[in-house]
Amino acid sequence: MTATHMTTDSHDPPRAGKPPEALSRVLAGVRAHARPIVLPLVTAALVIAAWEALVRVRNIPDVLLPAPSAVAVRLWETLPFLLQQAVPTTLETIAGFAISTVLGIALAVLVSASRLAREALYPNIVFFQLIPKIALAPLFIVWLGIGSSSRITFSVFISFFPVVVATLTGLTSVDRDLLRLCKAVGARPWKVYTEVRFPAAVPHIFSGLKIAITFAMIGVIVGEFITAQAGLGYMILFAASQAEMALIFAAIVLLCVIGLALYALVVLAEALALKRYGD
């Protein structure tokens, strides 16, 4: 009886006239919005499936390349332990990123505000970027020991430069006529900074911060490789020494999740800032 009822209902002309159209529009909307999410997920799923198939078909041993399913099992088994290791890694990444943000913005303001600073400092900052910083990592241990301060410092060294460059671009990209107007009305230079240059730089600063957050994490992981005390980077190294390939991948998966979450937070902050400062 219910079935008959449903059939008559769906064939009811006065109602069926509109809802299907509205429904198809909603579906089209969902499709348009889902596309940028679904498409990369499908691609990733295909790659993972191919990996799984390859390992099973070719019978590749776990010590060489564990199947994604084996990684998932290992991740599930060791999750409490891995999460515990993830705490220092995450906190140090956030600390490195925060310091980079403050230092990068301060340096950019200094370099853009003072000609002396620009001429004396900026070429050196750029030159410093050309040094392969990984090669400097052991020095940080000599100078700062094997504690978190040496990992955070290294993370800052790796991640502050994009913030400097992006902020500098923002501070100097202000419309020339707007600056003229400010000058003409007798605005103090610091007022021009706080009221015009800095707000205009906000969208640029966030493009630097998005790069900095990923670099900050790389810095901490490299630091953990070298200081070898705790953290997911250390876990990866330890697992490698034990030929625990599945555990390495499990740690990497967790790193990706944390990295993505931190990046998403920066993107969220950016969206909020652009609402206020965007064009």
């Binding site: 419309d175 006529d177 107007l181 400062y277």
Partner: peptide
Amino acid sequence: MMFQDPTLMP
């Protein structure tokens, strides 16, 4: 002063 662009602060 007025310029070619409105040069407003967004």
